[in-house]
Nucleic acid binder design. Sequence first.
DNA 1: ACCTGAACACCGTTCAAGT
DNA 2: ACCTGAACACCGTTCAAGT
Lengths: 187, 187
Amino acid sequence: MRADARRNHERILEAARELFAEGQHDVPMEEIARRAGVGVGTLYRHFADKEALMGDLVRERFLVFNENLRDALAALPQTPAFEALALALRQNATSVAEDAATRFAFMTGEERVFAAAAAEMDEFRTLAAELVGRAKECGELRADFDAADIPMVMCGVCATIDRPKPDWDWRRHLELVLSGMRARATG
Amino acid sequence: MRADARRNHERILEAARELFAEGQHDVPMEEIARRAGVGVGTLYRHFADKEALMGDLVRERFLVFNENLRDALAALPQTPAFEALALALRQNATSVAEDAATRFAFMTGEERVFAAAAAEMDEFRTLAAELVGRAKECGELRADFDAADIPMVMCGVCATIDRPKPDWDWRRHLELVLSGMRARATG
DNA sequence: ACCTGAACACCGTTCAAGT
DNA sequence: ACCTGAACACCGTTCAAGT
């Protein structure tokens, strides 16, 4: 790939992140191209369509998620496994809250958006399963919790993050879910 | 309103429900009009725009939610308050799961969609507050749970309902949340 | 009063022409 | 190889003409 092409690729992603961050709910491809300083044709040369562009944003976000999960695993066993898991989920939610582009992609994205991040999502599942296993072993996480429940509950918290209301607070939502995950004290 | 106009109004809502139920993610206004047997102009005579149409679908769904909450209140005190609340939430989630049109409206709707159902949502909040109060009184619901958390967690479960994945199960999600809501046994 | 559908606007996507 | 932007397709919405 030529140097100018690579630069354009980066500029397009950056322009998308900027425009979504500026608050409009959706952003036209035309506008993303203009902000990136390229023609629409160039945008479509780099990304098959809008879903592919959003897929790349999702992919980058999963790289961050996975780093948070790896940090959590690295903190074991000094940190109790449930607390390490809870911290990683709080970090992931915060990272989504700060990135309007990914949030839009998560909420409106069809299958093809997530297909672009399949490898990273696989790694996410593997790391989550490891962490969930460790937290169950020490009896801090309820025994019937499944690793696949992690993406599911995160999806729920994301929905709250994405539609802020005066009397909603996604941190409360997450803490409530964490509380449901925590094992009850055994008699 | 003339009889034929009233019939058209009903037909349009019915057509929208049908088409969304048939599985496409979104449905063009043109297609809704055709299915209802009217011109697009007529559709726009009955509903200011697409959001207003979806708002009416949301409004009807809230009528069902409120009925479920009233049933729960009527079952007190024979039924324990927390169980009555849990049943109502399960019924509401099931009703959303069976209505693709409302689900789409909930997930993609902007403020204006919910504005159309403002009165019904107010009643929902009132009923939910009453039920939450009763469940706290008997110590079955955790004391720091707020009535406003009900719509918030339901929004999270809706997100799971709306994007089914092979290893996700919205009923599990709801039960997990309910488990987080339940008061811990006091020492 | 209410209905109709051609026409317009907006935005995702393509492609012939350029460097 | 890569870039450009005019052109096309699709869909939400309007409005002049009809009953």
